[in-house]
Design a protein around this nucleic acid. Sequence first.
DNA 1: ATTGTCCCTACCGACTTACTAGGCAATACA
DNA 2: TGTATTGCCTAGTAAGTCGGTAGGGACAAT
Lengths: 154, 154
Amino acid sequence: MLTQKAKYGLKAILMLAQRNSSEFTLVAEIADRQRAPRKYLELILLELRKHGFLHSQRGKNGGFRLARPPEQITFGQVIRVLDGPLAPFPCASLTGYRKCVDCSDEQVCAVRKQMRRVRDAMAAILDTTTLADAATPALARDVAADPAPAPIPA
Amino acid sequence: MLTQKAKYGLKAILMLAQRNSSEFTLVAEIADRQRAPRKYLELILLELRKHGFLHSQRGKNGGFRLARPPEQITFGQVIRVLDGPLAPFPCASLTGYRKCVDCSDEQVCAVRKQMRRVRDAMAAILDTTTLADAATPALARDVAADPAPAPIPA
DNA sequence: ATTGTCCCTACCGACTTACTAGGCAATACA
DNA sequence: TGTATTGCCTAGTAAGTCGGTAGGGACAAT
């Protein structure tokens, strides 16, 4: 299970992906639309910025926008920043590997072996699905900014 | 990420799956071999028993054994009992569904949509992999009871 | 100078995790 | 019958995490 933080973060960054990439969007507006606590969301966006996903500007007409094109940001990257490794156990993780203290020989541990399969299956989805993939307006109205301007007529 | 509890539980039940199914194994022995705190493991095994995975007997020569053949117990079943739903978010879960309070229309939420894919991928592995699948001694020496009798010579 | 915005640090209550403690209850065996 | 052995049950608990809140400082536009 992921945390609420990751959920807010994913929804927020996906909303930015659907906006015009050159414009800044206010935290308050994102919070409002995604029904997230403003101050809490602020912390999350700051974290995403610190890791290079977002660009921000202060003062009037400030806000946040993507720092890279949405084709270059995956769900997996965002989740790892906000919630840590994908794998069910640290011993089955590639990016956040930590040895099992209660395992005499990891190489043959059957539990780890299965969890590695699970990790791979998760990564196969999350590391290949980009914001652009998920942000096609027709499929993502809930996260979208505008009240659905019917993008592809009949 | 799953918890330590699920890890202990999986290793323990898998160890039992590799034993002769008619014999009882002591909590103390399982704890010892899996390097788990005895009293804590006891709670976990009790929980697995309460959910019908294990059978137990008290007094001398007592202990735990599987309540069903290992072909009929999946990783997914065990994990759900010890750690709850598999899905990244409750709104993407089948067995533990709970509505998203911060979502105006779940049906079109792009985040949920991707998380549903992840859930399905996880379930495809965890709900089809049984203890019997994982417990072939040659592949699971770490979790096995005996000190590895070299199963397939050269 | 003022207003609007992000930025930073600190704090907090509730809950969960990963245990530990202690004793009761049943079973086997002498 | 007694006693040792084992699981069964309830409680407690220290440390950490989650999901926020609070308050102000830095900076940009006007």
